[in-house]
Computed example of a mutant assay.
Amino acid sequence: MNRLLFLGLFVLCGCSDSTPPDSQCILGEWVVVDFRSPKATEDRGQRRKHAIISEGTWSEQFQGDTFEDFEYAIDPSKSPKELDLTYTDSSGRHLKVRAIYEIVDEDRLRVCLGSPPIVLKNGKPEFVESVRPITFEAKDGPVISYRRKTKRAEWFFGTRD
């Protein structure tokens, strides 16, 4: 029995020759360590904000202690790897932000968001299609670098008291 548990942990923690799929690698709680916006070189006010990524939901802390929830989909077969974040605005409209991402190592993640799906035109909001970035440069949206707050084994199994 102990051998099976050890083998399961060995594979889950990425200690085997095969790397877990991105859909498993991104799960967990992440802390922002760098936030570069198109308007400034670095937004230090975003540091230490959190993202909690579970299957199907990406919760991102932007302002204060509140989190915004997004549905997400990834496509690791693309180059660069693609991420789509979808949220519902106050009128019930589903809006999608296109992005790219990379898993730098088991404890670091980088995301570059594309253009926002809403722009102001003559002082009125207009809905447009988000444009996906092709490089990790803060042109239309920010580049956010995260480090994992909890180790993957702790995220899946919890910690022991």
Rank of each mutant, 00 (worst) to 15 (best):
V128A: 09
K139A: 02
T150Y: 11
Y146D: 05
D140L: 07
K124S: 05
R132A: 02
I144F: 10
E129V: 11
F127T: 08
P133N: 15
D140Q: 13
S145P: 03
P117W: 04
T135I: 02
V143G: 02
R132S: 05
T135M: 14
V128F: 07
E126L: 07
R148Q: 07
V131K: 15
P142M: 12
Y146K: 10
K149G: 12
T135C: 09
I134D: 03
I144Y: 11
I118T: 12
N122K: 11
F136R: 01
E137F: 00
S115A: 13
K121V: 12
P117S: 08
S130K: 01
F127C: 06
F136A: 06
G141L: 00
Y146P: 02
D140G: 03
V143Y: 03
E126I: 06
P116G: 12
Y146C: 05
P116D: 03
S145N: 13
E129T: 06
T135A: 15
V128Y: 08
R132F: 05
K139Y: 02
K124E: 12
P133S: 14
G123V: 08
G141H: 00
P142K: 09
I134Y: 08
K124H: 11
P117H: 11
E137T: 01
K139Q: 04
R148H: 04
E126K: 12
I134W: 06
N122D: 12
N122E: 09
R132D: 00
F127Y: 15
D140H: 07
V131C: 10
K149L: 15
S130Q: 01
R147D: 14
S130E: 01
R148A: 09
